[in-house]
Amino acid sequence: MEKKSTFGFTDFAENWNGRLAMLGLAIGLATELMTGKGILAQLGLM
């Protein structure tokens, strides 16, 4: 029986990576709309 890999470019890892990226983008846009500042301004970099 072959052991299933849980590290590297697996379908499982790529699915979670995509989901978390979409969630991060949505949270970033919502935060920008609520504060009126971009992410760099919120972090004090601009």
Rank of each mutant, 00 (worst) to 15 (best):
L29P: 00
E14K: 10
A26I: 10
L25S: 04
T10F: 03
M1D: 13
T10Y: 02
I27R: 04
K4Q: 10
A26E: 14
S5R: 00
G18F: 03
K3H: 09
L33E: 12
L29D: 02
T10G: 13
G24Q: 01
A21C: 01
T31F: 00
K4N: 07
A41H: 14
N15L: 14
A13P: 00
I39C: 00
F7N: 11
G28S: 04
L20C: 08
G38D: 06
A41F: 07
L25T: 01
F7I: 14
N17I: 07
N15K: 14
T6C: 08
T35F: 15
I27A: 05
M22D: 15
A21E: 05
E32K: 10
G18P: 01
N17C: 09
N17M: 13
N15A: 14
E2K: 04
E32L: 11
M22F: 07
A30C: 05
G24H: 00
F9W: 11
Q42A: 06
N17V: 13
S5F: 00
N15G: 11
S5H: 00
T35H: 15
K37M: 14
L23R: 01
K3Y: 05
F7C: 07
L20K: 06
T6I: 10
G44N: 10
W16F: 14
G36H: 04
F12Q: 13
T10L: 03
G28I: 02
L40A: 10
K4T: 08
F12V: 11
N15M: 12
A13S: 08
L23W: 01
L29R: 02
Q42V: 06
A21W: 04
K4I: 06
G38W: 02
G8V: 13
G8L: 09
G28Q: 00
G28F: 01
E2T: 12
N15Q: 15
K37I: 05
I39Y: 07
W16R: 11
F9N: 15
L25P: 00
G28K: 00
T6A: 12
G24S: 06
R19S: 12
F9L: 14
L40C: 07
L33M: 09
I27C: 02
W16I: 07
A26G: 05
L23Q: 01
M1W: 08
M34P: 01
E14T: 13
F12P: 03
G36V: 09
L45C: 05
R19T: 13
M22T: 12
F12L: 07
E2C: 05
I39M: 02
L33F: 06
L20W: 04
Q42D: 09
A21L: 08
G8I: 13
I27S: 00
Q42H: 12
E2W: 03
A13H: 09
T31K: 03
I27E: 01
T35E: 15
T35Y: 15
M34K: 07
I27Q: 03
K4S: 07
T35W: 15
G8W: 10
M34V: 08
N15W: 12
G36A: 06
W16Q: 12
G8F: 11
T31E: 08
A41E: 15
Q42I: 06
K3R: 09
E32G: 14
L29C: 06
A13F: 03
A13I: 03
A13D: 08
M34S: 09
M34Q: 10
T6H: 11
S5E: 04
I39P: 01
A26P: 05
F9D: 12
M1H: 11
A21K: 05
I27V: 11
S5L: 02
N15V: 14
G38T: 03
A13R: 12
D11W: 02
G8H: 10
